[in-house]
Design a protein around this nucleic acid. Structure first.
Lengths: 114, 114
DNA sequence: GTCGTACATTGCCAAGTGGTTATAGAACTG
DNA sequence: CAGTTCTATAACCACTTGGCAATGTACGAC
């Protein structure tokens, strides 16, 4: 079935995008609103081209959308691929306790700026 | 913080393991019980060494555990890393409707054998 | 012991990844 | 216009990945 192929390719890109900690940090940052490559570069502690590359990977996975504002380009997080990932994982009947979620989320955001 | 490092490394491996469709198929297969490399090789349509490699990747991500039974080695799925992945995704407040879950899971397992 | 089966490991290759520096382009500023 | 800022692209590098065939190893059967 052809549709399955496309699905696989999407999940390939989504999980591959999530498999890099710099990209995960970028996504976590984008929860609190759009950011420019310059801002993300400061966060990542890498060169600007490196961050541009990461943004491109996130974009191709659909996790991020660019939006021009004059000479700045803001990256905006897109939740759809995260839902796809969550749906895949949910096939294993892994139920995450919502309270545990919030706890871990809090811990992680607390140690964000390592 | 050192703990964060370990966490990142784990998520790196988990998402990287999930980023390959062959490995995802293996995991989906293992939902219905342990399987040997030989069985998984038939499923994957790849060489036996290729499947062994995939199993090793899954093992290093903690997604799978080997268990000897005489000359056969059964792979057993481990849910803990999937929970870690789900917890990460849940930080984005992506809530997957449980009914939608089951629907998509059903569709995917229906088109499993390509 | 020898044979056969199941699996892992090795060696190889093409392609992809993640980083860098240097350069180019796009848009505002003066 | 020239200059500055923000971002993307190019070129390069070391390393990893995913596949293969060939070989090695571990175990049970005979």
């Amino acid at each position: 079935m052809r549709a399955q192929r496309l699905d696989d390719e999407q999940l390939d890109r989504i999980f591959a995008a999530l498999s890099d900690r710099t990209r995960r940090r970028i996504l976590l940052r984008l929860r609190s609103g759009p950011a420019t490559v310059t801002e993300l570069t400061a966060l990542a502690g890498l060169s600007q081209p490196a961050v541009s590359k990461h943004c491109k990977v996130l974009e191709e996975a659909g996790l991020v959308r660019p939006e021009r504002d004059a000479q700045r380009i803001h990256r905006i997080i897109e939740l759809a691929p995260l839902i796809r990932a969550a749906v895949f994982v949910s096939q294993f009947e892994v139920q995450v306790d919502a309270r545990l979620d919030r706890l871990e989320a809090h811990l992680q955001s607390g140690t964000d700026e390592e």
